[in-house]
Nucleic acid binder design. Structure first.
Length: 938
RNA sequence: GUCGGCAUAGCUCAGCUGGUUAGAGUAUCACCUUGACAUGGUGGGGGUCCUUGGUUCGAGUCCAAGUGUCGACACCA
């Protein structure tokens, strides 16, 4: 599985060139990306070994081994790569461990489907035969997604690639199972579980999703088996039903077919309308079984008729009632949710025990073997025909369905393995609540706490073959042993049975496999072999990992359980920070789905916009925890940005260098930009520390495009004389290259490919060197830096104002103008004057006491500027503009003065705030005065 | 039903412990094919910060209620 384009390594600096030897005007990612990824691999730049540096570890949320890359992965993996590359450039020993998940139920379902296409049924195969098919499938499709991650630029240490069912991970899972069993935390027993009748396995509570459905509510007649005594009177609150057959109670249900498992009817003892039913017996319609009326406050008086049918085998709440009142549980279904022949056996027994009028009864034989929904329809029809149905109403209901197969689950009593959660929940709660482990965004702490505080035991066994087989062996004489392997099992079995001649062949291993998440929860430990080999060098070094990046949908499945396992087996948190990503939606806010066709293929996007472009598109609107409305337009923006970087590089690289003196404008520009970089680096560090990655990207984006390209480069760009470009002085050139390099480093985590390409081209590099290892340490900005940048903002305002004058008066950029100003002491007027002249194309800046007549004037701060325009000036328009501004300023002044005249404000507000208001007042007054003066002179 | 998040420009979102008449990206409009880049440049327009009350000298920011919206959990058979 070799990446086609990546195999041939090319020269360090191949770039598409134009005929004349200059660089092409467009950046071409396709030529660059494969080349550099291979370079990184060839030089083992992603690989990590424990050393003296601070570790930075991320374990990948393992995608399904047979999965393919979708937009959700692109988001998730891009974030991880940004974090890893950022940490690596900070000088940390970055280790990103990739791998895949065997995804027990999902993969088994896919294999079963494929076999079905070939006409093979799973039930026709032995376990070994089936597993052979499953492994073949895994090898065929497995790892495709890992190859696709390379296209994205992910800097995983591929030598560490793990699989949740490889040898190390399998042994770890078994070891943990045995350990938890011996600690008494794992037990086996018959419980009500969620049964998936399609996958034919039990599921955990977390694997059940509720879907809204339009169904029916059936009101069925349960006739009284005994005569009705006369101790109730009509009108005393009792609601009594009677027809020609006799008295009856009405029971409302959404599942009429389950009456075959009815063993009681339950009323609320406080329900006035059902008092007459107390102590009675009723006859289950169709079935003919006579059942008692029991009383429990669990029953909601308001719902339906207040009469609840009790079917302990098929409803969790009924099961609890059954336990409480010691009722029989009649399981009416086969494993695939067709009706079992037990229903007719039970009916015969019931009819034999008690005689029931024949017209209440329908032979249940006809339903045996029918599918549950067909049966429901049929029995409703039959009851209606037999006059046993009072009425049928429309009803909206939420139905629990299997997350994986989508079919409605059946609550089913069955023998399963469970993990007690109380202790594990205990150790996992406080680290999150007190921020030892930090959630981003923090709102998920609530969700987390709620789940842990209401946790139930975890059903960990699955009636599947693709997974870790439960290490329990049953003895021929009954009972079982739990052991890490067959030898140990045999030994334990011999001890337990007292039969020293017992052979392995006498033992039968449990057929079930473990829930996939029972292996995933060990991932941050098992990847470093910390379960089998506790305290080894790797686990000591890399654990706890730094950041976990995942979706909030698996906070219970995975995140919470990793925290439990982490504390149970390492005594430490598995990760320090959890970054929850949102769901990737389309730009209309809809979930991406195959049927809507709104899910772009990431690989096609990469082809179209380049991996860097796609990564940027993804990150531009991806605040942690918010859903992402993905729009290709953002990838386009990413691609355009690449192109901008590329062209800035072309410009700088195209300069001729001379040993001339540095022009004043360039000198101040380099000073300013160097300060600007320090400020930006500080801002970036802050964004990263808060995991505000899209803001970090936006910070660099604006830094490169606006500050560097539009301001800095324009200020230092050598002029053209007689149509010929002049050379740049060496000082400026060197500074520019250094700035460029810093910018590339800042951009690298977000856009690894183009930054490597240009970093390699900007200076000569040694073989094997890479930008990804280049450290970025800028000194903290000084007060002088801050002042300089603030002053420069004023410069920009002046330049922009002059450009606005040009734009309004339609004066060509080439035409030189003169600027007049009244306050020479202003920063903007002195050290920056050369820069202003260059950026605004001025021939002079004159300090004047009185502006020329016929000039366009403007205020920056309290300094007055004017551009003499001669007869170009439109006095009316000028007056109008000034009047608008005057109005605005006067309104402003009024509000400030109102504040200042409020004694309570002056007394209560901090001195600095009051001072600020006074300054605002003075400034506004001065501005108003100068505008009035200008107006008067017009 | 319980709990939680969110509501700011056409769109997507910033706005930290309250303190200049609220910002960014994008979209949009006008002008400009100059010599890195039209995948570009320059300039402009655009907001009752959901509503109502309260606290405060001062509220987009804090509190309460309401409305809308999204989510988690629990579900009445």
């Amino acid at each position: 599985m070799k990446d086609n384009k990546n195999s041939e390594v090319t020269t360090p600096l191949p770039r598409e060139e134009q005929g004349d030897g200059s660089l092409a005007s467009k950046y071409s990612p396709a030529e660059v990306e494969g080349k550099w990824y291979q370079y990184w691999l060839d030089h083992k730049l992603f690989s990590s070994k424990p050393d003296g540096r601070e570790p930075y570890t991320i374990v990948i949320p393992p995608p399904n081994v047979t999965g393919v890359l979708h937009m959700g992965h692109v988001l998730n993996e891009t974030i991880q790569d940004i974090l890893v590359r950022h940490a690596r450039m900070e000088g940390k020993n970055a280790c990103w461990v990739p791998g895949t998940d065997h995804a027990s139920i999902a993969t088994e379902a896919k294999v079963v489907n494929r076999l079905a296409e070939q006409g093979i049924k799973k039930s026709d195969l032995t376990r070994e035969e089936f597993l052979k098919h499953a492994w073949a499938w895994t090898e065929e499709h497995g790892g495709i997604i890992l190859k696709q991650l390379r296209k994205l630029g992910c800097s995983c240490d591929w030598d560490r690639t793990g699989f949740t069912m490889d040898e190390i991970r399998s042994e770890s899972v078994i070891k943990v199972f045995v350990d938890l069993y011996r600690k008494g935390l794992i037990y086996r027993g018959v419980r009500m579980v969620n049964w998936d009748p399609k996958a034919l396995t039990a599921l955990s509570d977390e694997e059940v999703v509720y879907k809204e459905e339009h169904t029916k509510l059936y009101y069925m007649k349960y006739y009284l088996a005994d005569s009705v005594p006369n101790d109730f009177v009509a009108g005393d609150g009792n609601v009594v039903h009677k027809d020609k057959r006799g008295y009856y109670a009405v029971v409302a249900t959404t599942r009429p077919e389950t009456i075959m498992g009815d063993v009681a009817m339950c009323i609320n003892p406080n329900d006035p309308k059902n008092q007459w039913l107390k102590g009675k017996k009723v006859i289950v319609p169709v079935v003919g079984r006579v059942i008692p009326v029991i009383e429990d406050e669990y029953v909601d008086i308001e719902f339906g008729t207040g009469c609840l049918k009790v079917t302990p085998a098929h409803d969790v709440n009924d099961y609890m009632l059954g336990e409480k009142y010691n009722l029989e549980a009649i399981d009416i279904f086969n494993d695939d949710a067709t009706l079992s022949d037990r229903i007719s056996t039970a009916q015969q027994a019931a009819l034999a025990a008690k005689s029931v009028p024949a017209d209440f009864v329908i032979g249940l034989d006809r339903y045996v073997g029918t599918e549950r929904f067909a049966c429901r329809k049929q029995i409703a029809e039959d009851m209606t025909a037999a006059g046993l149905m009072e009425k049928i109403e429309d009803y909206d209901n939420k139905i629990g369905c299997s997350e994986r197969t989508g079919v409605p689950i059946e609550p089913k009593l069955s023998m399963q393995w469970f993990l007690k959660m109380e202790h594990l929940a205990d150790i996992a709660l406080s680290p999150v609540m007190n921020d030892d482990i930090q959630f981003y965004p923090a709102k998920y702490k609530n969700t987390y706490r709620h789940w842990l505080e209401n946790i139930k035991d975890w059903c960990i066994s699955r009636q599947l073959w693709w997974g870790h087989r439960i290490p329990a062996w049953y003895l021929p004489t009954g009972g079982f042993v739990v052991a890490e392997n067959e030898q140990e099992a045999l030994q334990l079995a011999r001890e337990k049975s007292g039969d020293a001649n017992l052979q392995l062949a006498d033992l039968r291993q449990d057929e079930d496999a473990l829930d996939t998440w029972f292996s995933s929860w060990l991932w941050p430990i098992s990847l470093f072999d910390g379960i089998r080999n506790p305290g080894n060098e790797e686990i000591n070094y890399y654990y706890p990992t730094a950041d976990l990046v995942t979706g909030p949908d698996i906070i219970f499945f995975w995140v919470a359980r990793m925290i439990m396992a982490g504390y149970e087996y390492e005594g430490k948190m598995p990760f320090k920070h959890v970054y929850f990503t949102g769901i990737v939606r389309d730009k209309l806010g809809r979930k991406m789905s195959k049927s809507l066709g709104n899910s772009p293929n990431p690989l096609e996007l990469i082809e179209k916009f380049g991996a860097d472009g796609v990564r940027m598109g993804m990150m531009l609107s991806a605040p942690a925890g918010n859903d992402i409305l993905f729009d290709e337009v953002l990838c386009e923006q990413g691609r355009n940005f690449n192109n901008k970087i590329w062209n800035a590089f072309r410009l700088v690289k195209g300069w001729e260098v001379a040993d001339s003196e540095q022009p004043e404008a360039a000198r101040i520009a380099t000073q300013w930009f160097s300060a600007k970089l320090r400020l930006a680096a500080e801002e970036l560090a802050d964004d990263f520390s808060k995991y505000r990655l899209s803001e970090a990207l936006m910070t660099v984006y604006k830094l490169f495009w606006d500050e560097f390209s539009s301001w800095y480069l324009e200020m230092v760009k050598p002029a053209y004389i007689d149509g010929k470009p002049q050379p740049v002085d060496r000082t400026t050139y060197d500074a520019t290259l250094q700035f460029f390099e810093v910018l590339l480093k800042m951009l690298h985590p977000f856009m690894p490919f183009i930054t490597e390409e240009l970093w390699q081209a900007i200076y000569e590099r040694k073989a094997g060197e890479s930008i990804m290892q280049a450290e970025l340490h800028l000194p903290a900005p000084s007060d002088a830096d801050r002042q300089l940048c603030a002053d420069f903002e004023t410069v920009k305002e002046v330049v922009t104002a002059i450009r606005a004058v040009r734009s309004q008066k339609n004066i060509a950029p080439k035409e030189k103008l003169v600027l007049e100003m009244t306050q020479p002491q202003q920063a903007a007027g002195t050290q920056f004057s050369n820069a202003i002249m260059k950026m605004a194309n001025l021939s002079a800046i004159n300090v004047v006491t009185e502006k020329s007549s016929g000039s366009a004037s403007f205020l920056i701060g309290t300094t007055e500027f004017a551009v003499p325009l001669g007869n170009l000036i439109d006095l009316d328009a000028e007056r109008k503009k000034l009047e608008t501004e005057l109005q605005h300023l006067e309104g402003f002044l009024t509000s400030v003065e109102k504040k200042l005249s409020n004694e309570r404000f002056v007394q209560n507000a901090p001195a600095a705030v009051v001072e600020m208001e006074r300054k605002k007042q003075a400034d506004a007054q001065q501005k108003i005065a100068s505008i009035r003066e200008t107006l008067a002179s017009l």
